[in-house]
Design a protein around this nucleic acid. Sequence first.
DNA 1: CGTTGGATTGGCT
DNA 2: GCCAATCCAACGC
Length: 241
Amino acid sequence: MSGRRRSRIERGRAPAADPLAGARRLPRSFFARGPRALARALLGRVLVHDDPEAGRLAGRIVETEAYGGADDPASHAHRGRTPRNRAMFGPPGHAYVYFTYGMHHCVNVVCGREGRAAAVLLRALAPLAGLAAMARRRTPREPAALARGPASLARALGVDRRHDGADLTRGPLWVADAAPRREGRRVARGPRVGIRVAVERPWRFWLAGDPHVSRGAGAGPEPRRRPVRAPRRHGAGRERR
DNA sequence: CGTTGGATTGGCT
DNA sequence: GCCAATCCAACGC
């Protein structure tokens, strides 16, 4: 949120000629914070992949999930460093891309400080550029579904294991600070999708009402804002991070 | 070295 | 709503 000066972005409807005009690449410092804070801060920013072949592929981040390290039983880094999760322990501002289910890739943004595992899983984007190229690689071609869901998102942007460990502050894969950021939407949160442990930690964040947010396998269509009795413990039972 | 199941998805019962 | 697809990381022996 620096007051950068730029001719006012098109207000109201505007030709999406170049949705990234004037966009700045987010610096390392932006990623140097805890996963929950970053998960929120990333909402509304734009993930960009200047693909050597497909050209510019980009979408606004509308859904994220925070993952910690040893303290987070749902994290890949829960049991320490391994060949797969090593990027999670590296410096912030890099990508942690993993392969799963024998066919899918998922993209994370590494955060926090080097040596301590933490990352934010990118779960859904509102496509902004390269829609045609994205549609070419995706099965449901409906625009709203092109990058809905972590594996769909990776597929749409052409991100795979080659990007594991990539520096987001330098390479073709980066995060832009582009307006309009949230279009007035509030940030909603709920349990992480597909996670069976630490369900009491609502570390999934999304822009309320955004049509590009994933259904969340089994987490219900539009998660409730407040599951009536959310045992919010005070004092004891408080965990770090 | 064998086994288990996954931060998922799309198509079909 | 259910389940197969399809690889391989993590873990147990």
